[in-house]
Design a protein around this nucleic acid. Structure first.
Lengths: 343, 343
DNA sequence: CTGAAAGCGCTTACAG
DNA sequence: CTGAAAGCGCTTACAG
């Protein structure tokens, strides 16, 4: 039985003694080296956590404000801007700082990822917010090994179990959009979505499908088209829909950007919105309000999503237990000028 | 005669060898301890400087990538997004990192500023990019004292001598906009600008004035109105212009956002653009392309401006001499649908 | 995959 | 004031 030692900052050697492994092995775990048996790693990680060990890299960065890294796929969209605005707001409240980067979507995840995680530890990042990008098990491994918290906003794929994600009620939003069109008498309603595998896209699509099904309406062949969350996909999507034998009378677009593309192509072809074609967007950014006609759109609380993503990340970084691994904020259908009763 | 040693970072021990004192003594000098003879201290300091020794404290901020801080007044505009995109592009090229913040425009500059500069030094920032904000002599003092380089993009006021600024050829752009309208036969041309004191606004205004003057056309009273670079200023501006005895037949707006406001208010009032009113914007963001009718606008190369601001800052931070304290990139008038001959 | 041994750069305590 | 010696916390190279 030993007296509690004067509480000093635990050293690497102390952790070694505690776990019964050597100092070099602890060093390897701390620095995320690969050549450590999983069992050993787990044991050491637990002791590290328990004792509150801080690596030199961590230590030297932890005296200033916390720094959170944000990886966007692109920064030039109203969606990204609104989200960034919310993240910055949250950071200002928490006294944290934001480093912005573009996720190099060109390269596949690999050794690069490991380097990125290592760099982030070296620079003392509190964690990473990933926006509209894929988050794979190999990401998870690289970040978890180094105890870097991650929050994913609107992930492009279902993130591995245990990864926190923030989004909106995409399914209800999709359902609300379709119901609005159904209520206006439309039955030939198409869906022009983003990347097929994107989780938010899937949810919007299935919300739409469920609304149609519950009214006993089946979706025509060719009425569901996937692309990217960009105006170009709206242009090509409308073009494809008009080539169908039975063109739709209404379109639900998976994002405002897509809807703007539809609008542009419709104008180009002399199709009047909403007289000839009703159109609903998704996101509720300034784009929806500014376009002509103003877009009926399912609004996401993007600023709040950004703020909450930041706060959730910091909470994880402080080691707090989270209530949930998925935060979903309410969407709201905002009716403007781009939808009208079927004539 | 010894061969040049492989250039590694000089260690404390190396400095000791160089000066002929012991390592502990060098350590004392580096850490500013008092118990060192003045002569010894001087000798060691000189060697430290000469060899470019970096203390662990210093090193912790300088071994990673360079970090540049960017202060926006707001991040939710196409203007800011495009600029940020360029800045990030430049940072990726240079291996630098970007910390984004919103400049707290609410508080006046004071002791706060000094704190900010001090914090930036503590965190080892390479410098600061200021976007569309005021940069005053007291900023200059706070940053110069700490040898922190600063680059101002589209400053709201003429920055103090010696501060580097990046912008576009606003005067020529303003002149080009007005000449385009004059060429279409318009003579009653109003200017709806941003903040009166903003340098870029002044340049655009005077470009416009010079075009009118050189055709011997005088500007009606009330035809020049200042506001903010926001849609609201377009709405209020058009309202004010329509209340004049002689309403203009064409408007040159100081930004696309202002022009979009004009467009919205015009539509609201049943005024057709360009049939009843010709309209030219400024910036050439996605806003201009997406609005209906698509805006004739003076395009600024915002991405390039961002990239160049970043590169210029890093060059300063490396101590390179700059050729010029003002970098100006070319603007270009892009004619779209919002302008037509005077009928 | 593990750890004894050697080593790194720096600091401390203290004898002179 | 100075520096030989011991020590700190951590990492590296490498034998097993």
């Amino acid at each position: 039985m030993s007296l509690a030692p004067p509480t000093r900052k635990p050293t690497l050697a102390a952790i070694a003694r505690l776990t019964g492994v050597s100092a070099p092995t602890v060093s390897k775990v701390v620095n995320g080296r690969g050549d450590v048996a999983e069992g050993t790693r787990a044991k050491v990680l637990a002791a590290l956590e328990e004792a509150g060990y801080e690596s030199p890299a961590h230590r030297r960065n932890s005296d200033g404000p916390q720094t959170v890294e944000v990886a966007f796929d692109s920064v030039t969209s109203n969606y990204s801007s609104a989200l960034l605005d919310g993240i910055l707001e949250g950071a200002a409240e928490a006294g944290a700082e934001i480093v912005v980067g573009i996720s190099g979507s060109s390269r596949g995840p690999g050794a690069d990822l490991d380097r990125k995680a290592r760099r982030m530890v070296d620079e003392g990042r509190a964690g990473l917010i990933v926006v509209t990008s894929a988050f794979t098990p190999s990401h998870l491994a690289a970040f978890r090994r180094r105890r870097l918290p991650v929050v994913v906003v609107d992930p492009l794929n279902p993130p591995p179990a245990g990864v926190v994600s923030v989004g909106a009620t995409n399914w209800s939003g999709g359902r609300a959009a379709a119901e609005h069109l159904l209520d206006l008498g439309h039955e030939r309603i198409a869906y022009l979505g983003g990347p097929e595998s994107a989780e938010c896209n899937q949810a919007r699509l299935h919300g739409y499908l469920s609304a149609l099904m519950s009214r006993g309406i089946s979706v025509e062949a060719g009425y569901v088209i996937h692309g990217r969350f960009r105006a170009e996909s709206g242009i090509s999507g409308l073009t494809a829909l008009l080539a169908l034998e039975k063109a739709p009378t209404a379109i639900f677009a998976g994002s405002d950007a897509i809807a703007v593309g539809v609008l542009r192509e419709a104008r180009h072809r002399g199709i009047r919105v909403p007289e000839d074609l009703s159109l609903v967007g998704f996101d509720g950014t300034a784009l929806a309000e500014d376009s002509v006609p103003a877009l009926t759109s399912v609004a996401q609380p993007l600023q709040d999503m950004g703020r909450i993503a930041l706060r959730t990340l910091l909470r994880q970084s402080r080691g707090e237990q989270l209530d949930s691994h998925r935060v979903e904020l309410a969407t709201q259908l905002v009716v403007r000028e781009s939808t009208a009763p079927l004539s």
